[in-house]
């Protein structure tokens, strides 16, 4: 990224973002820009604020923004309620997908999709159209059709929940997808399926932020940029080779460097 790029060409621009939860500051000045077509990996040790960053971008009400701004497609993202952000293409694949008893997966997703389509000025889909779409998308994540009628995430295994997240992403076709530790708790097969799903959905006009603790996922989803988050700040940015470096040396070196 160079200075000649116009500011409003960024898809996402995070400037000096500070956020805290229950009075405790977690993010202490994040700066990050993301362009369409890019994949950014945000890595860092436990407690560094990675998941907070993901949640804050999606508008989780538990976090208080104390300073800074986030511009998304030229709009002030922080002023938008969470559902507005979702309709405008921000998608968060949850680290811990939530269970909603009694509400079927298909009903839930259809409600979401039709809201998104209305926002984008598209016709809403009826049940049949939606089912057709859903079945297509389910192939991407190799999901069993029986999941359609099961309650949202209820009784799903860890891997099934994560696949369900990617399925939702495939259906909602976000502009900016944020994957929060999507690799945690996945076995190697599930990891492959989830990653392939993400790669299939990659397009020149969308972008992806992959939040992860381990380099492992980045073997499957190759990032254009890697950022290392320590103690609520990005302390180092680089290309995909940075992830390998972290894998070899661990976070300690960087942590030390950061505290100096």
């Amino acid at each position: 990224m160079n200075d000649t790029q116009m500011k409003d060409e960024y898809m996402l621009e995070i400037k000096n973002l500070h956020a805290s939860v229950a009075g405790k500051e977690i993010l202490r000045g994040i700066n990050l820009t993301v362009n369409a077509g890019e994949v950014h990996a945000v890595m860092g040790p436990n407690g560094s604020g990675k998941s907070t960053l993901a949640q804050v971008l999606a508008g989780h009400p538990s976090y208080e923004i104390t300073e800074g701004e986030v511009i998304y497609k030229g709009k002030n993202l922080l002023e938008m309620p969470p559902e507005e952000r979702a309709k405008d293409g921000v998608f968060l694949a949850f680290q811990y997908p939530v269970e909603i008893p009694g509400v079927s997966n298909s009903y839930f997703l259809k409600a979401g999709l039709n809201e998104v389509r209305k926002y984008r000025g598209l016709e809403t889909l009826d049940a049949l159209q939606f089912l057709k779409l859903l079945k297509e998308k389910m192939k991407i994540v190799e999901m069993d059709p029986s999941f359609i009628n099961r309650p949202v995430n209820e009784g799903f295994s860890g891997g099934e929940k994560k696949r369900n997240e990617i399925l939702q992403m495939a259906v909602l076709e976000p502009t900016l997808a944020i994957l929060d530790e999507t690799d945690s708790g996945l076995d190697i097969d599930a990891l492959r399926i989830v990653s392939e799903g993400v790669n299939t959905l990659k397009r020149p006009d969308n972008a992806c932020i992959v939040v992860t603790h381990y380099q492992r996922l980045l073997n499957y989803i190759v990032p254009d940029f890697v950022h290392v988050l320590v103690n609520g700040r990005i302390v180092k940015s680089g290309g995909k080779e940075l992830a390998l470096e972290l894998e070899a040396n661990g976070y300690d070196q960087i942590k030390e460097a950061a505290t100096v």
Binding site: G59, H60, P82, P97, V98, A111, E115, Y119
Partner: peptide, 16 residues
């Protein structure tokens, strides 16, 4: 709160 947020993150407003 997490259920509501999850729904909202998928574009569904509070009442719905």
């Amino acid at each position: 709160e997490d259920q509501l947020f999850y729904c909202k993150q998928r574009g569904i407003d509070t009442e719905n």
